[in-house]
């Protein structure tokens, strides 16, 4: 199939990709510490955690639903995992339990949204508080001590690539992105997700069980958030009950910058990753340049607006072009 400009421009993550490449070049010129081995290592460090959450959110938004509770699940899953390890559970079993708690919360989000016919925005806002409270109660006033001697190299060890040494978690992120991208683009279930979010009535009338599709996406989104939380907690070797507070907004920002449409039915995994890379890059350059860190939120906000405007414009142009 020939590559044509029109199809390329119509891709949802196009604007984010362009901004990313442009800013990367600009930053490399204005600050010689930006594109340097040490800085790139620092830059890549937290990427997998936010990107994995953003990918889950992206898929859920494509399916036409929303999840505000990902930040709380991000804190709750590692809390459960670490507490179980303290109680003598093997690491694998403790992580599995942490992921299952996350999946259960996703199931709860789906149940409240789909069976009780409440907007997922409200259902998951409620879950944001409930899951956070659960994490605080579990911590019991004193956050549990992370087992320092635990071998975490398989998840967050240094990956020596010569120029940069990112964490092993970057490989997990890439693997997850490849699998999810494959599911969305090449598998029938992916088509059902796009159809469910793109036109729910049409999807139902064509025999797709849209509630099942949405439920699967709710559970996937929460499980990914839980896994990302476990990665972060293992990386910093600390677990506190407020881990991931406010993360939902950054993840949604990454998804939106990456071209997901809040109306559903439009978005891509690559977009979620590029959106994450962009947000982290803004933070990185502000720190490097010694700018007051409080400008970070301003920059992210401006980025959301610019990316979405650019997205809308390129898509409109693509539609206007004769293919």
């Amino acid at each position: 199939m020939k590559l044509n400009v029109r199809n390329l421009m119509a891709r949802p993550e196009m604007a984010a990709l362009l901004i990313f490449v442009a800013l990367f070049v600009v930053f490399s010129f204005i600050n010689d510490r930006f594109f340097a081995t040490g800085n790139m290592t620092v830059y890549l460090q937290p990427i997998p955690e936010l990107a994995i959450v953003a990918m889950g959110i992206t898929i859920l938004i494509i399916a036409g639903e929303f999840d505000l509770s990902v930040g709380s699940v991000f804190g709750l899953s590692p809390m459960v995992t670490v507490l179980l390890m303290q109680n003598g559970w093997p690491t694998a079993a403790a992580i599995l339990a942490g992921l299952m708690i996350a999946a259960l919360i996703g199931f709860g989000n789906g149940l409240i949204t789909l069976k009780l016919k409440i907007p997922s925005f409200i259902a998951t806002l409620g879950m944001l508080f409930m899951a956070r409270s659960f994490a605080v109660v579990l911590a019991g006033g004193f956050p549990p001590i992370f087992p320092r001697e635990l071998d975490v190299s398989w998840l967050v060890g240094r990956l020596d690539l010569g120029l940069v040494t990112p964490r092993v978690s970057l490989l997990y992120m890439i693997a997850i992105a490849l699998v999810l991208g494959f599911v969305l683009r090449r598998m029938d279930f992916g088509h059902w997700i796009f159809a469910t979010g793109g036109h729910p009535q049409a999807a139902r009338d064509m025999g797709i069980k849209t509630e099942r599709v949405k439920m699967a996406c709710f559970m996937l989104c929460a499980t990914l958030a839980g896994f990302a939380g476990i990665i972060q907690s293992f990386r910093v070797k600390v677990i506190v009950p407020n881990l991931g507070t406010g993360l939902e907004m950054q993840a949604i920002a990454a998804a939106v910058i990456g071209g997901v449409a809040l109306t559903g039915g439009v978005g891509s995994i690559l977009g979620a990753v590029v959106g994450t890379l962009l947000i982290a890059m803004i933070e990185n350059i502000l720190i490097l340049s010694g700018v007051n860190a409080n400008w970070f939120m301003f920059a992210v906000g401006a980025m959301i607006v610019v990316a979405v405007v650019l997205n809308t414009q390129t898509r409109l142009k693509a539609e206007g072009m004769k293919g």
Partner: peptide, 11 residues
């Protein structure tokens, strides 16, 4: 065949 065509516009 529905009046609204049962198609997903973005697909």
């Amino acid at each position: 065949i529905y009046q609204y065509t049962a198609m997903v516009p973005e697909m």
